[in-house]
């Protein structure tokens, strides 16, 4: 009587493992990527259009990625919260156009303490004469330990979100130093 029970337990464990592996990956959330108050203290009386690129969706068995839409929403929200520009416009038609592209996102496949490294290309163009007023490579990183989250996929997502928050913070601070 004991042997079938063991086999069933193995089936159950295998199923649970498969479901866990395939169903737990989640993309970096837009809320998690918004940096806290940056204390910028700069206000530009211009409108801003934002476009993002280089991101990717997160597949079921993939690890946390950043989608272009969520990155765009997080940057927009950070600009609004910090009152950096007068308004945000969708598409063309803004006084300035900000392009933010994710160029590198290095993530581990396994590990206890997870370290994520990221690079984004920030460029700001004046729409009226197409002059480039800023081009900057912004690098950021973040580490998360077992104390932050026990599940690997959650720990990785938190690390990706933390690195993105830092990157957005650095990018907006660089813009705030410009004379527009």
């Amino acid at each position: 009587m004991r042997r079938p029970v063991t086999r069933h337990k193995l089936f159950l464990a295998a199923s649970a493992l498969a479901v866990t592996l395939t169903g737990c990956s989640s993309p970096a959330s837009r809320e998690g990527m918004i940096p806290p108050d940056l204390a910028i203290g700069t206000y530009f009386p211009h409108s801003l259009g934002i476009q993002t690129g280089g991101g990717a969706s997160t597949g079921a068995m993939d690890t946390s990625n950043i989608s272009d839409e969520d990155l765009k929403a997080a940057i927009e929200e950070a600009v609004i919260q910090n009152k950096l520009f007068k308004s945000i416009v969708q598409g063309k038609g803004g006084d300035y156009e900000l392009s933010v592209r994710l160029t590198t996102l290095s993530k581990p496949i396994l590990g206890g303490t997870i370290s994520v490294e990221m690079e984004m290309a920030w460029s700001l163009t004046k729409a009226a004469d197409r002059s480039v007023v800023m081009r900057k490579s912004v690098k950021s990183s973040a580490s998360k330990t077992m104390g932050d989250a026990f599940a690997f996929v959650t720990r990785l997502r938190l690390a990706v979100e933390a690195a993105t928050r830092d990157n957005i913070g650095q990018g907006l601070k660089a813009i705030a130093e410009l004379k527009l």
């Binding site: 089936f11 159950l12 295998a14 199923s15 498969a18 479901v19 395939t22 169903g23 079921a60 068995m61």
Partner: peptide, 9 residues
Amino acid sequence: FAILGVVAS
């Protein structure tokens, strides 16, 4: 459940 898990994987 096991078959579903394998198919999903």
